[in-house]
Simulated scan of single mutants.
Amino acid sequence: MVNKKIFFVSNAQSIHTVKWVDYFIDRGYEVHLATFSTVNTTRCDNIYFLSSKNTSVTGGNYHYLFAIKKLSKILKDIKPDIINAHYSYSMGLISLLAKKISKINAKFSVVCHGSDVLAPPIPFIFNRINRYILTSCDKVFVVSDEIKDKVEKFGVDLEKIFTGQYGLSITNTNNTKDIDILSNRTYHPNSRIDFLLDCMKTLENRNLNIVFVIPNIDNQTLEKFILEYPYINFYKHVEYSKMLKLMGQTKVYISATKSDGTALSLLEAMKLKTIPLVSNIPSNRSWILDGINGYLFNGKVDFMIRLEAILNLNTDKQQNMIKINEKLLLEKADYKNQMKKIEDFLI
């Protein structure tokens, strides 16, 4: 039993939270979790629900601010050794303010996952908020070099920054590859779902099995897409285990994000023998070499050329890409190894 208390402030329904919280529970720490989610998918029993109001991942969650006093009272009562918040300007902000109000002596850290730093809603305002939060941290965790560079520009000392994703713990299976193309990024301007759908128009009569899972899309927009693209199978949300099954059945994983952290879905695609076709941005270039273990694209023409190349890959080329990805993930994205590094840096 480790004689330390860790207090997480995060979405208890997020797979990111599950991976962090459950690891530290298994390691024997006394773990507490405060959340605005109404559902807890972690194994944490010390759970504190901060609000019953629905939360939107697209923003506008100003009710978070009204929970600062409640959170400060919980922190004062628990007196954790470490506070770890996920997503900078949301959970990071209320955690920092609650810590200051509670006047407890705890190490404070934030995990930046991507859009919270790279694509905030109003950059002029939220860059200032992020700078305040992150320069107040004892430790900052970022999941890609692109985020690290931005955090450094805020004035955070390099020795306080840990760069790396928590890795994968999924088992590869030999699934039948009966889905040709899969997109599963959240409906957000940064994801460019409309761009990907526009690219799919040329495939209407190709008899391909195309699947778009679009979390957080509103019903009206989803209905519009279903009518406009009858040859695509749309899902608003699927459970994580089902998502992994779909990925394992897929030949080509596509993502067009304008900026990103190390996308968990990209690593899952690589693990499950799915060839990635992703936007040519720094975080993706950290994992994908164009034409070697996946493909990078810049625009629509680029995207279509590379998509055709993947759909027509010969078996030898495909298997070589899969082997490269297996080796890369073993070196850089093993869950237990990555989380041990995170633990050592955090504690």
Rank of each mutant, 00 (worst) to 15 (best):
F162W: 15
Q165R: 14
Y166N: 08
L168H: 00
I170N: 06
T171C: 03
N172G: 10
T173V: 09
N174G: 01
N175H: 08
T176Q: 11
D180V: 02
I181L: 06
I181W: 02
I181V: 03
S183Y: 13
R185T: 00
R185H: 06
T186W: 00
T186V: 10
Y187L: 08
H188M: 11
N190S: 11
S191E: 03
S191R: 02
L196D: 09
L197Y: 13
M200L: 14
L203W: 14
E204N: 12
N205Q: 14
N205H: 14
R206H: 14
R206Q: 12
R206W: 10
N207E: 14
N209T: 07
I210N: 01
V213C: 09
P215C: 09
I217Q: 04
D218Y: 11
D218F: 08
T221K: 11
K224E: 12
Y231I: 04
I232Y: 01
Y235W: 13
Y235L: 07
Y235I: 10
Y235N: 07
K236Q: 11
H237F: 10
K242Y: 04
M243C: 07
K245N: 10
L246Y: 13
T257D: 15
K258L: 15
S259L: 14
G261D: 08
T262N: 02
S265E: 00
S265A: 05
L266W: 01
L266D: 01
E268N: 08
